[in-house]
Structures are given as structure tokens and as C-alpha cells.
Design a protein around this nucleic acid. Structure first.
Length: 184
DNA sequence: CGCAGGATTTGCT
DNA sequence: GCAAATCCTGCGG
């Protein structure tokens, strides 16, 4: 993921945790009720950005992945800064450990400077915000999604196994273990 | 037109 | 560990 490409505020981050959301078969998805004004972008062309405001204060960024006509979104939950750490820290305000700078959907958007104004951006063209494919070959794990109350059992969360940026479900920053636990 | 709830984070009782 | 902060979307009347 690259934001502010070509500017002094360019930031590169490697995505390490995502969640998939589908359509009418996924009660936890915004697209569950059909192509409402907000969710219509999920029914659009793949490779576009979907940003929305959560709980009136945090932004969440998604990437549309299925062809037009099929509802889909992949929520970006955590990433690791590879370039532009100073810019990210300036946006975050506080000074968490480097591994946690972009941990959590809201923090990720804040650190990368993603907002509703970026909604609909084409991430596959060479714009200021775009994705770079990297066949990392990292160990992946999957499990239940976090923070939802419906369709809790669907194992649609995917993360880099053991990566410190990935938070354990409902056991975030505390004096417990910092490592990500396995799924079911 | 009014209301209830949500893909969260943070700080304090 | 729990509750507040905060506003937009979707649904019902």
C-alpha cells in the first residue's frame, strides 16, 4: 500500500491483516441489504477504495475485489510502515511502538491519511494512493472476524501468522501476551 | 421526520 | 474491565 506517492509525505506500508466482506450471504457486510447509497461501491469495479466512517469517529478502508455486479470488500485491519514513518507518527499524534503504528482499522486510516474524501479511488492505477502486489510468501492464518456481531463464525479474517501488528481478538493492548493467537 | 445501531479506540472508575 | 465519544446510514411511520 502506497499513499502520497510522489510527494514528500509518501508512505509505504505492508498489509498484514485483512477481513473479507461479501454481499447478500454475509449479514455483517454493508452490502447485505443490497446496493444502498453507501454500499454501492462494493458492487462496483474491483480495485477501488471504499472508505467509511465508523462509530462517528474512525475511518475504515476497504478494497473492492470482485467484478462489477458482485458485492465484495476487503477491510484493511493492520499494516507495517516500510517508508515514511515520520509522516505516520505525525498523523497519529501519539507514539506507539513502530509495529503498532498502523494496527487496527481506525489507526491504519489515520496513519495513512485515508478519509472519506478518498472514497472510490482507483488503487490499481498510478495515483497518489495505490496498491503494489507483492508475493510475500509469508505464513498466513485465518479465523473469525473481529468487532462484528453477526456472522461471527465465518473465518474471513486473514493475517500474517505471528506478526506483532496483528492484534488478538478482543484482547488488544494489555499486559497479556502481545503475540497473535491462532484461530479455532 | 425520527430513531436505533455500528467492520472502533481510548481513557478512567 | 468498562463506558464514553460521536455521526451517518438504513429503516419504520
Amino acid at each position: 500500500m502506497v499513499t502520497g506517492a510522489g510527494t514528500a509525505a509518501e508512505v509505504r506500508a505492508r498489509i498484514v491483516e485483512v477481513e473479507a466482506y461479501r454481499g447478500s450471504d454475509d449479514p455483517a457486510s454493508h452490502a447485505f441489504r443490497g446496493p444502498t447509497p453507501r454500499a454501492s461501491i462494493m458492487f462496483g469495479e474491483a480495485g477501488h477504495l471504499y472508505v467509511y466512517l465508523s462509530y462517528g469517529m474512525h475511518h475504515c478502508a476497504n478494497v473492492v475485489c470482485a467484478p462489477a455486479g458482485t458485492a465484495s470488500a476487503v477491510l484493511l485491519r493492520a499494516a507495517v510502515v516500510e517508508h515514511g514513518e515520520d509522516t505516520v507518527r505525525a498523523r497519529r499524534g501519539r507514539l506507539p511502538p513502530r509495529a503498532r503504528l498502523l494496527s487496527g482499522p481506525g489507526n491504519l486510516c489515520k496513519g495513512l491519511g485515508l478519509a472519506v474524501a478518498d472514497n472510490g479511488a482507483d488503487l490499481c492505477s498510478a495515483g497518489p494512493i495505490h496498491l503494489e502486489a507483492r508475493s510475500a510468501g509469508v505464513p498466513l492464518q485465518s479465523g473469525p472476524r473481529v468487532g462484528i456481531r453477526r456472522a461471527v463464525d465465518l473465518p474471513l479474517r486473514f493475517w500474517w501468522a505471528g506478526h506483532p501488528a496483528v492484534s488478538a481478538p478482543r484482547l488488544p493492548r494489555s499486559h497479556k501476551g502481545t503475540g497473535a493467537e491462532a484461530g479455532p
